[in-house]
Simulated assay, not measured.
Amino acid sequence: MTSAPLLYVCVRPQQGAAAAEYESFRVATKLDESTLGHLDLVREPLPDDVFERYRGFVVGGSPFNVADPESTKTDVQRRLESDLERIAARAAQADGPAALFTCYGIGVVTRMLGGQVSRGFPEDTGPVTVELTDAGRGDALFGGLATRFTALTAHKEGAAEPPPGATLLAVNQACPVQAYVVGDRLYATQFHPEPTTKAFTERMAVYRDDGYFEADAYESIAGRVLAASVTEPARLLRAFARRFGPA
C-alpha cells in the first residue's frame, strides 16, 4: 500500500469483483493509481498510520451484512467492521480525514452512531430513483446533483431513519435512508455511486447465486440496468475527489 491523497478501502472477499470495483471508483473519481490508493481490508488490517497518510477514504460494497447475528459472522468480518468504524469515527471529527461509505458501509456507520439496521429495507438489484432532501439540495457535495436521479442498488438491509447526529440527504420509497452526512466530512450512501451500468452487470454475474435476485432472471435484470441512464452518482464521487483529494 503506497501513500496517495485518497484511499479505496475494499471489503469484498471476491478478488475479481474487488479489482473491478477499484477500477470503477478510479474512473468515476477521475483519479489515477498515484492519487487513489488501494487497501484490501479483507486480507490486511487497517494500518496504524493510515490517518496520517491519507486525506480521504472511499469504502466499497460487500456481500457481508451488518444486521446478521454476530455469531454467524467470521473473524474477518468482525475485524473489518471494527476497522471501518475507526475510519468513520475519525471522519466524524471536524479535523479528521473525509470518508464516503457505500452500500454495506452505510450499515456499519449507522450502527456505530447508534442507529438501527435491519433486513426490513432491502432493494431489488437494479436501477432505482433517488430524491434529494432539502438538506441534500444545499449540501456541498449533493447540492450539485439533480434533485431526482437514477442510481444502482443491490442490498438486503437498510434503515428507516438516519442515525443520531446525521443529516438525511437523499431518500426513496423502498429504503428511506439513501444518503446522509455527519458533520461535513463523513458521508454514507445506500446506493452504489461508482459503477457504470456495464460494470454493474458484470458484478451481478459474480453474485448471481448469492440471493440478491433470482439467478434465472439475470438477463432481464441486466437488460434493465443497461437501459438505465446513471450519471449523477459518478458526479458525486468526482465532487468528493475534488473537495478532499489531490490538492
Rank of each mutant, 00 (worst) to 15 (best):
V108T: 09
V117W: 06
G120S: 15
L46Q: 07
D48L: 12
A91S: 07
P45W: 08
I87E: 09
D32F: 08
G120I: 15
G114Q: 15
Y104D: 06
P45A: 04
Q14V: 12
R90P: 00
L31I: 07
A88W: 01
V50K: 00
G115L: 08
L113H: 06
A98N: 00
D40F: 02
Y104N: 06
D95L: 05
E33P: 03
K73A: 13
D75G: 12
T29E: 07
R78W: 02
V58Q: 02
V42I: 14
G60D: 04
K73S: 13
A89M: 04
V76L: 07
V9G: 05
S62L: 04
L36T: 04
L84Y: 04
G16L: 14
T72C: 13
D83S: 05
K30A: 12
A17E: 11
T74S: 15
E52H: 05
Y104G: 00
E33M: 05
D40A: 02
C103F: 05
V117Q: 10
Y104A: 03
V117L: 14
F25Q: 07
D40P: 02
T110F: 11
A94H: 05
G115C: 10
P97S: 09
A92G: 09
D68H: 14
G61N: 08
V66R: 11
Y54R: 04
R43Q: 12
V27E: 15
Y22E: 00
A89V: 06
Y104K: 03
V50R: 00
L39Q: 02
N65R: 15
V9I: 11
A18F: 07
S34V: 03
F101S: 10
L46S: 01
R119Y: 15
A89Q: 11
V76D: 13
R43W: 02
H38R: 14
Q77H: 10
I106P: 03
I87R: 01
L41H: 03
